[in-house]
Amino acid sequence: MTDYDFLVVGHGIAGATLAYVLRQRGHRVLVFDPGQTNSASNVAAGLMNPVAGKRFALSWRAAELLPFAGAFYRELEQRYGQKFFYETPIFKLFNSLEEQNAVLARSADRPWGNFMADLTTADPGLPGVHVPFGGAWLRGGGHVAVRELLASLAAEGHDAGWLRAEPFDWHQLQTGADGATYAGQVRARHVICCEGAAAVRNPYFDWLPLTPNQGEVLDVECVGLSDAQVLNRGAYVVPMGAGRFRVGATYRWPPFSEGITAVGREELAARLSVITDLPFAVLGQRAGVRPAVRDRRPLLGPHPTVPALSFCGGYGSKGVMLAPRLASLLADCLEGRAEIWPDASLQRYNALRPVGVI
């Protein structure tokens, strides 16, 4: 029997950041992950956007989450000698005069205005970009090379032996007051579920209000299109270098098709055509399933009746922005040094757990 402090199930952005934080604090950690290349984290463009949606709403806790995430990804860059975090300005194109006026009216508000670098009501002359109504320059965000980041962490994990490339069978888990044992081979003080959308099938957490949401992205080549910023109008256009961009993302609620679709490709191509008149070639297309929550807040914290279990997920499309700070928060909680924020705690949904269910 091998002893660990924590078992982390899942090595997407939530599990990978949590496992890293716990290891950095000196804990013995073992991670199980089946290594799905089409997971939501591996498909995502890794956008960190302080302003969300058509209403230009400030992202949840953006003033705290964004700088924390930036510092975390820079730390990983130093560790691996590789570029992961691109603190790129985001240019939000207005799609109408009404939207332009609405943003002008609130641009000085705090803390919303702290993320506004500049605002223009005229075409700023970005190469290849169609800007009939102007737009807003947003600061404090950018994008993360999530696939490359996870690959570097996984390579270290395989070499060091703390990452096992295999599925986790929850039916082989036995829990008690002093911890848990798995498959008669591994013992740990605590087990954390970081399975993303797959948690809907988890026998301990299937009562949580996770609603899987499928998203598709395109990788395109568009020679001449401005790559000095992320573009955002109905779709994000993230520069990947050498005239290549990632365009996303679609949102499909169940039931949805397995894998990529022609409908998703056409939708994203149409959205890109609104942003640029330049010709572009589709180089690739990918699809993943996000772990969305009905109130668009994460789910974090201990199981209500099984002390040896916790949950970490429900990040939706905000994973790269949420994961570092919430990993630190959950680690603090597991060490008995903090409480989970009420608006992030899975305890807000305790009433959904049927009586008699684990």
Rank of each mutant, 00 (worst) to 15 (best):
C194F: 05
P324E: 13
R201I: 07
G135F: 02
G10F: 02
R290E: 10
S273C: 11
K92H: 00
E148I: 02
H130A: 04
G26M: 04
A57G: 05
H27P: 00
L7G: 03
G248D: 12
G46W: 02
I260E: 15
L65N: 07
G26D: 02
M321K: 05
A165D: 13
A188R: 02
Y20P: 12
F56T: 10
V146G: 05
T2S: 01
A14W: 00
P50T: 01
A40S: 03
T17Y: 01
I275F: 05
G70F: 00
N114M: 06
L18P: 06
R325V: 00
L218K: 05
F133P: 14
E266Q: 11
E195Q: 07
L119R: 10
D295K: 02
I358D: 06
P298T: 05
A62L: 13
D219K: 07
G319M: 11
T250D: 06
Y80E: 07
D227R: 11
V355Q: 09
L334A: 03
G184P: 08
P89Y: 03
R164C: 07
A228E: 15
H190M: 10
S107W: 07
L225T: 08
R110N: 09
L163W: 13
M240Q: 14
R201Y: 09
R265A: 13
C312P: 00
A102E: 10
F72H: 09
A287T: 05
D227M: 07
A19H: 04
P203G: 04
G314P: 10
D343E: 01
